[in-house]
Nucleic acid binder design. Structure first.
Lengths: 129, 129
DNA sequence: TCTTGACTTGGAGTGAACTCCAAGTGCTAA
DNA sequence: TTAGCACTTGGAGTTCACTCCAAGTCAAGA
């Protein structure tokens, strides 16, 4: 799979994909005889994971750490789990915060709706007189 | 209320509070005779709102727009509601994305937990022989 | 054969949101 | 009255995460 296809499939620009490789967030991708990147299934799976996690707000730093450990075999299991659970806990906190903000937004929106209703009622009242 | 107290209370640095004022995200705050900012209840309420919304990921741009309209009286009700509902919808989308990421994270964590369990079982098995 | 287009590289540039800094002012406590 | 501290300002610097650029290579199609 070439960079353009991967880019298309996951909505990550080729520049970003190369950037991820450059900073070590994803492993160096195999090249064909012309030096063109040829992403294999494993690469693509990892990119999918990274995309998901980035879209949830995980930092590149945390992901880089995790992806690094992935390369170092079974003895890093515990460390990997630690990173993932820490990130999971952070994510849950962020979501709780967001829920509070959502409630606040909905509350305010309801106020605007009621205000409109009030206006309508006033208009209706005026018309009825 | 002085800037240090507001900063303390909402976990926003004095620099950030001044920055918000500078870019028009919050109104110019009244000063005492020495030119020191003296936040009133209204200021503080707005700061609280901004903090909540920023922590949920709303952009400063969207918030600035909204805060601007707040200053322009009743005829901006509709526009304000529009901004808030648009932001609410964005927020809901983000939260849905995050939920998917959370599911994925939990799934991976469970794998690590099971792997550990497997290791334990293997050890137990070795011991029993 | 020539052009087109996708790719390569290293490095520079961008935008959002802060964060820091230097120089200065003015209350307060010793 | 002098030291210390919290504040003021405008502007510069930082961080994160891309995003763009110039110059070059290569292969396939007209």
């Amino acid at each position: 799979m070439k960079i353009a296809e991967v880019s298309e499939q996951y909505g990550i620009s080729p520049d970003t994909l190369r950037y991820y490789e450059r900073i070590g967030l994803i492993l160096p991708v195999n090249r064909n005889k012309n030096g063109i990147r040829d992403y294999n299934e494993m690469d693509v799976k990892r990119i999918e994971f990274v995309r998901r996690m980035r879209s949830a707000g995980l930092s590149i730093e945390a992901l880089s750490q995790y992806m690094g450990l992935l390369q170092q075999g079974v003895e890093t299991f515990e460390a990997r789990k630690k990173i993932l659970t820490a990130q999971r806990d952070l994510l849950v906190l962020r979501m709780e915060e967001m829920q509070k903000s959502l409630d606040m937004l909905n509350f305010k929106i309801r106020i605007y709706e009621n205000a409109e209703l009030g206006k309508d009622l006033k208009i209706a009242k005026e018309k009825s007189q």
